[in-house]
Design a binder for these strands. Structure first.
Lengths: 213, 213
DNA sequence: ACTCCACTATACAGATCGGTATACCTTGGG
DNA sequence: CCCAAGGTATACCGATCTGTATAGTGGAGT
């Protein structure tokens, strides 16, 4: 594992990954509801947001909400799966540059650059997966695989890049990059200091230029 | 800042820091309530736990809860302040070794060792401050300074240690250690891979042995 | 003896929670 | 022409939410 990722573009990995949940047809009203739910869940927390509020903000009746999604739990799942999907697409745009294969070292930096850009416009309160995990206690919750899957995917991404940089230490390097990245997201969300993702990027640069030793 | 921390023992810094909230006299019933609230808040999330449940778990009436704490909001504040206090004491025991001044490099490692030990017995779901932050949207919430204060204190600790190791790069080194540490706590909470805090410790060791360059 | 104080027990208020039911409107494709 | 699908509007359900009110108990200090 990890090595299998090696030569793939990110967009290849986006496909076929979400075998789990997310089968709901997004009618216009459902799309509006999901947009509102996503915004509210992320900014106020999942338990703090009721379905009445989601319906009101989306300009949709509760009936429609339940016709489309069936339950609040499912709205949560769709929210996380949708956000994950958007993030992966956002990242793919910046990693799979057309007509030019970026070397692995630059792709590592590109991940951090993408995170910084994403954080600035979509993610001022930190990682939605981490935040959702804080509110979900039951491991049997259908959102669990989405959360765990996202983190495993990111770890696989870093490990795959690590394999191109220092094959004998791919796993070690991948994990270190993962820690720096997660730490930077948290630090950004809590405003611990200025531009933590940029700081992590520079540490990552030092790591990959020495081969992760 | 950062340099002022230099020669202090951690226990010195614990004192006089919490000027903010936390003035409540902990009667026996209040102590039981706080213990139950802490356990429930951490494991299930703040909004998912009602005051009735706290009262029931503590073997205390709701009347007593409100006589002691005044509001659920205040229980949350006490929960976080109490946990922060316990963590700092836990850390101080491992940093301020009697009859022997640990060199800064070893104290950095001791922080990660303490975090690993703490995580194993008290913190399987990640950092309570990060998790609480995920549920609190309003920056005017009285728990905000507790959360921000804890992170700033940890950053100050790392920066102070960094100043002893590489005075000209104290801030940079402190921030890098902070990112590794936060990342490790998140990774531990989400179970991304095995023993992330141990991994972060080894990365920290490499960092402080090269002087953080 | 008297009085605080911490506490129990119970009931209730008003709001909001997730979720359901009924009835009606509109639109596009067989 | 019809009818299914997506939608609105509104009312309702039981449960739970934070918070309050009333009444009473037992012990420690003066």
């Amino acid at each position: 594992m990890g090595a299998s990722v090696e030569a793939m573009g990110v967009s290849d990995m986006v496909m076929g990954e979400n075998e789990g949940p997310r089968r709901i047809a997004l009618t216009p009203a459902a799309r509006r509801a999901l947009e509102a739910a996503g915004r509210l869940f992320y900014e106020r927390g999942i338990h703090a947001v009721g379905v009445d509020l989601i319906a009101a903000e989306a300009g949709v009746t509760k009936k429609t909400l339940y016709d489309r999604f069936g339950s609040k739990e499912q709205i949560v799942v769709e929210y996380l799966a949708d956000r994950d999907e958007r993030w992966r697409a956002f990242l793919a745009e910046r990693l799979d540059v057309p007509d030019r294969e970026l070397p692995a070292r630059e792709r590592v930096l590109a991940v951090f650059d993408a995170s910084r850009a994403w954080a600035l416009e979509h993610s001022s309160k930190g990682c939605s997966m981490v935040n959702a995990h804080a509110e979900i206690s039951d491991p049997a919750h259908p959102a669990y695989p989405v959360i765990a899957g996202q983190k495993q995917w990111m770890l696989g991404l870093f490990t795959g890049l690590g394999a191109e940089i220092a094959p004998d230490r791919a796993e070690h390097l991948g994990r270190t990059l993962m820690l720096l990245h997660e730490g930077a997201l948290v630090a950004h969300g809590l405003g611990i200091f200025d531009d933590p993702i940029g700081h992590a990027r520079e540490e990552a640069r030092a790591l990959v230029s020495t081969g992760g030793v």
